[in-house]
Design a protein around this nucleic acid. Structure first.
Lengths: 150, 150
DNA sequence: TTGACCTCGTTGCAAGTGAAACGAATAATC
DNA sequence: GATTATTCGTTTCACTTGCAACGAGGTCAA
């Protein structure tokens, strides 16, 4: 006689739910960005951060948009090759790069953002008035996950 | 003079928030499962589904745990090689497999589940009373994302 | 100013991934 | 019942990923 397994419902298991939903949401935009603009998700995050920060370094971007530095480095190299950004050496600390959008990069970002905004608007419509509650829950998790006392 | 970029706040952008949080949550357990049991996330999902379904096929698992069939196939092959499950041919439709846990597989699953449950309990503590609201929001998104009218 | 140590961005490598193609088995159509 | 389509699980292939190592630059203290 087998010992019975404890009950377990995957649909109540948050790591699973979040993983599945996150990949569905991301795939939605990723497909369009790749198809229409040839831009990957890491490249999109790098574009965003370079567009909204003041000459960030690779390390700055790594911290701000939760991308491994190797991903940031490769995305930046790819964006540079396509002419969307330029890398400049920081004169005061020559280990650092200063990234900046080219005109074409700014133009591209100006097209990508409305698409993301429209998608977020659609998600908000789906959520009705639940969006603040969802964000609050995500904030709770993000802030307290490292708290070992919980 | 550059045209100004529209405002955009990554932290309010759900696909980003979910992706980052999901990978943090999953990494937490993935590391432990890999280190202590040599089990990957795809293998964990396959184990779960085989444990709680009646001799599912590869395709059944693909549908139930949101894993590509190639991932399911590879995870099942790996679990079989480690002696945690067996593949049997379905007699009535010889294209199908019937997967079942071995005793060792059931034993392993019996150890993995309490770890996942404890983690979910910890998440619920962090969320305080917000867990139902979070699940409701996730349900809304999951159910309506394909609805083109929204 | 030399030596030990740290940080930066890049890259080599092994492992994982998704999409497409594949052979085998079944279903559907005529 | 022969032909065509479809489904199943596997595998191939090109690509991405994460990690560790690396060289170059910087910091600090003896």
């Amino acid at each position: 006689m087998q010992k019975a397994l404890p009950d377990f419902d995957l649909d109540l298991y948050l790591p699973y739910r979040l993983t599945v939903l996150a990949s569905r949401l991301s795939a939605e935009l990723a497909t369009q960005y790749k198809k229409d603009y040839g831009i990957s998700m890491p490249e999109w995050r790098v574009l965003l951060n370079v567009g909204y920060s003041d000459s960030p370094s690779i390390r700055d971007i790594e911290k701000h948009v939760s991308l491994e530095k190797s991903k940031v480095s490769r995305a930046a190299a790819s964006l540079e090759a396509k002419g969307f950004l330029i890398k400049e050496m920081d004169a005061t600390d020559r280990r650092l790069l200063k990234l900046a959008l080219t005109d074409r990069g700014a133009e591209l970002l100006g097209e990508l953002i409305p698409i993301a905004t429209a998608f977020q608007d659609r998600l908000n419509r789906i959520l009705c008035d639940q969006e603040p509650a969802l964000r609050h829950a995500l904030d709770l998790l993000a802030e307290n996950l490292d708290d070992q006392t919980l």
